[in-house]
Design a protein around this nucleic acid. Structure first.
Lengths: 159, 159
DNA sequence: CTATATCGCTAGTTTAGCTAGCGATATCTC
DNA sequence: GAGATATCGCTAGCTAAACTAGCGATATAG
């Protein structure tokens, strides 16, 4: 969430356009928060558990494996909290914990088929909507938009 | 948070550009989540309390007043939780509860000067960064970007 | 004028984070 | 190699902040 509540008075049309865009970003963020809220209700999960699932799906598609430690780091929660989180996901049948082949302290987390299916079932509709409104733009326009979005991400979180 | 974990293989340059943009939106959302996380740490508040404050600031700028009930609705938490949330904000000196002039059951919430000052102090830096990266774009480009962002917001949350 | 609805609140419960610290294992230093 | 130290995931216990149920005061509808 969260942008722009700024006391700023645009004078020129260009300044007005800048303000409009910043306001649109806030609106987009609010919308995505609501979307996420809806998804967690649908899937009957809390926000963090859903974020963990999403993170694991992203990693899996990149071909990376995931450890409990990495989940903790990504979500910025303690490893203790992560243990409980993984307990919830495991007992709900979303993930499995496997031994790490080389490090006997460590675990490797995998998603279940049920997990992937459920996630995409609930997410694909939104994704389709987004793709639908994105597709009409020309390639050049999309490149411009993509560049701007990256600029903004970079600006607010140069991580 | 939350986008794109999609199994989708772009074939044409245009499809690739679409995917890029959708990925950028996810990245932006992640970045904003982290920004928010940082802000709540800086201001020593939890995420919900900060969201409430932000919502009140937005409303105030629109000239609207805010009731506890509206805060509950906006944040999707119960009125009971809202009471406690307002207790926290009030005792921290961020808001005040005033009697509603016409409805003696109701309250009107107002921000303190301290609240506004603190919020903008922590937020203005991010805002400035965002404005900085936005300004170089031409008016036409900004209009395009703004239109696209609105399209996406509409698509994922047609509220 | 009576019945119902709404507003914000209190009381008590549950959820999901936290810190502290442990056993097992891995890695670094000599 | 052997001993010191670091890392991994976990348990135990605490706390913060949500929840549900329901109440008193007030407003509104029939």
């Amino acid at each position: 969430m969260s942008i722009m509540t700024t006391p700023w008075n645009p004078q020129t049309p260009h300044q007005r356009a800048v303000l409009e865009v910043l306001l649109s970003i806030r609106a987009l963020n609010d919308a995505m928060d609501r979307m996420n809220g809806g998804m967690k209700d649908d899937m009957d999960m809390n926000a963090t558990d859903l974020a963990a699932l999403r993170m694991m799906i992203v990693r899996e598609q990149r071909g990376d494996s995931v450890s409990p430690h990495e989940v903790a780091k990504h979500l910025r929660i303690s490893t203790a909290s992560t243990t409980k989180l993984l307990d919830r996901l495991e007992s709900a049948g979303y993930i499995e914990r496997h031994p790490h082949p080389r490090d006997r302290r460590a675990r490797i987390l995998t998603l279940t088929a049920h997990s992937r299916a459920t996630f995409f079932k609930h997410f694909s509709e939104h994704l389709e909507q987004m793709r639908r409104v994105t597709e009409p733009y020309t390639e050049d326009e999309l490149k411009l938009i993509g560049r701007y979005l990256s600029d903004v991400s970079q600006a607010i979180d140069p991580s």
